[in-house]
């Protein structure tokens, strides 16, 4: 299959990647090959194969609900590119493309 330039540009945009024309063309080609490869799997009989959601064979790893010490405010903010008082400061996003879902 092939991936259109628009589809590739849309994916790049979703991933916040800035690609020039050459890169777009190359990525479109590479992605198409990966998708072709995956589609080979689609042709195989998988009736008795459980979907794999993790490569490790472990389940149910928990911690108890107990509060542990947090970083201090200063430690938490130490790497902030920009801050104001007790807060991280970021450019304001005008919510048009996507936003917080939670």
């Amino acid at each position: 299959m092939s991936l259109s330039r628009e589809e590739t540009a849309r994916l790049a945009d979703l991933a916040r990647l800035s690609l020039n024309d050459d890169e777009l063309a190359r990525i479109a080609h590479d992605l198409a090959e990966i998708i072709d490869y995956m589609e080979k799997l689609a042709g195989i009989d998988r009736a008795d194969v459980e979907p794999l959601s993790h490569v490790l064979n472990t389940v149910n790893v928990y911690r108890d609900d107990r509060a542990e010490p947090s970083l201090s405010q200063e430690e938490a903010l130490a790497n902030a590119p920009d801050r104001q008082g007790e807060f991280f400061r970021v450019p304001r996003i005008i919510d048009t493309g996507e936003g917080s879902e939670a």
Binding site: R63, A67, S70, Q73, E86
Partner: peptide, 21 residues
Amino acid sequence: ESKVFCGCKTDFGARPNSQTC
């Protein structure tokens, strides 16, 4: 009492950025 994937507290109204890791 603690967050879903770490041990930080979940208290409402604490000083900003004081319950992080």
